[in-house]
Design a binder for these strands. Structure first.
Length: 265
DNA sequence: ATGGTCGTCCAACGA
C-alpha cells in the first residue's frame, strides 16, 4: 500500500500536474492540502476518471484538504471530532479524516503561524494541540493510523537548510516543535526519520530566489504512522521530480510504501 | 545589486 501526501498549492492550478503524477506513480491513497477550492469546485469527475475516489473538505480561496483513494473511502469526518481549537482556524478547512482499506487516514494542513508571537502563531499552537484531541476521538494508537500533511513545523534542525538563518522564525520555534512532539507522542512514527537520519531532506522550497536549485528548503510535509502500520513500512521517499518543470507546487509529494498485512495464523 | 514567486482574482495579501 502506497500512501502519499502533497500540498499542491491550488488543486485548480495544479490539476494537470496532479493528474499526470497519479498516472505515473499510482499511489493507493493521496492526501492533498491547499486545494483552495470550495466543495462544489472539486474536480470529482476528473478524479474519478483518473481512477480515484475523492473526498474534499474546502471553503474556497484558502486552505482546503482532500483524500484521493483507489482502495475505497468510508467513515468520512470533516474537521475536528474533539474540541476545536481556539481562534479563527477552528472554522478553516484544514482537517479531514477517512478510512481507506482499514487504515484511518488523517490529512492535515496546519496553520502557518505568520510570525512568532503573532496572534496566528498562538492559534497555530492551539490547532496542533487540538489535533491530539482529534486523534483521541477518531482512533487509538493500536489502530492502523496515518496522519499526514503539511504540519508547517520542521521537527528538528536537520529539517531546515540553515538553522541559524531560520532561528527566530516560525516552523522551528521550541513551542511549535513541542506541539508537534505531543502529536508524535500520541503514538506515531515519522516514517521518513525511521529510515533516514540525514540532514537536508526537504519537502518545501520557496518559489523565490531559486531556493529549490540552491537546496534551500524545509521538511514540513510529514507521514506519521501508528506503530502497527509503521511495522509494515518498506520504504519512504520525497518525490523531488514533482517540484521541477512547468508550474510546480512549492511542495513535493512525500510517499511511503507498506507491506501487505500478514495473513491471520 | 540586499531582491528574486506564486496563488487568490485585479488589489493587495498570504505563504
Amino acid at each position: 500500500m502506497r500512501i502519499a501526501t502533497w500540498n499542491v498549492n491550488s488543486l485548480k492550478a495544479r490539476w494537470p500536474r496532479v493528474e499526470a503524477w497519479l498516472g505515473q506513480v499510482a499511489p493507493d491513497v493521496l492526501c492533498v492540502q491547499e486545494t483552495k477550492l470550495a466543495d462544489d469546485a472539486f474536480p470529482a469527475l476528473s478524479v474519478a476518471a483518473a481512477g480515484y475516489e475523492g473526498v474534499h473538505h474546502g471553503q474556497g480561496r484558502w486552505n482546503g484538504v482532500a483524500v484521493l483513494s483507489r482502495v475505497g473511502v468510508d467513515d468520512v469526518r470533516h474537521g475536528f471530532a474533539g474540541p476545536p481549537p481556539q481562534g479563527a482556524s477552528a472554522s478553516e478547512a484544514r482537517l479531514l479524516t477517512v478510512r481507506c482499506d482499514g487504515v484511518v487516514v488523517v490529512t492535515v494542513y496546519a496553520p502557518n503561524g505568520r510570525a512568532v508571537g503573532h496572534e496566528q502563531y498562538y492559534e497555530k499552537l492551539a490547532w496542533l494541540k487540538a489535533l491530539v484531541d482529534h486523534l483521541d476521538a477518531v482512533a487509538t494508537p493500536g489502530d492502523e493510523v496515518v496522519v499526514c500533511g503539511d504540519f508547517n513545523v520542521a521537527p528538528d534542525d536537520r529539517d531546515v537548510w540553515d538553522p541559524a538563518a531560520c532561528h527566530g522564525g516560525t516552523h522551528v520555534s521550541p513551542a511549535e516543535r513541542e506541539a508537534y512532539q505531543r502529536i508524535v507522542d500520541w503514538g506515531l512514527v515519522d516514517v521518513l526519520r525511521a529510515r533516514f537520519d540525514d540532514a537536508g531532506i526537504y519537502s518545501w522550497w520557496d518559489y523565490r530566489a531559486g531556493a529549490f536549485h540552491r537546496h534551500l528548503g524545509m521538511r514540513i510535509d510529514l507521514v506519521l504512522a501508528s506503530t502497527p502500520l509503521a511495522s509494515r513500512l518498506e520504504w519512504v521517499l520525497v518525490d523531488r521530480n514533482a517540484r521541477k518543470g512547468q508550474a510546480p507546487s512549492d511542495h513535493a509529494p512525500v510517499m511511503a510504501g507498506f507491506a501487505p498485512r500478514s495473513p491471520a495464523p
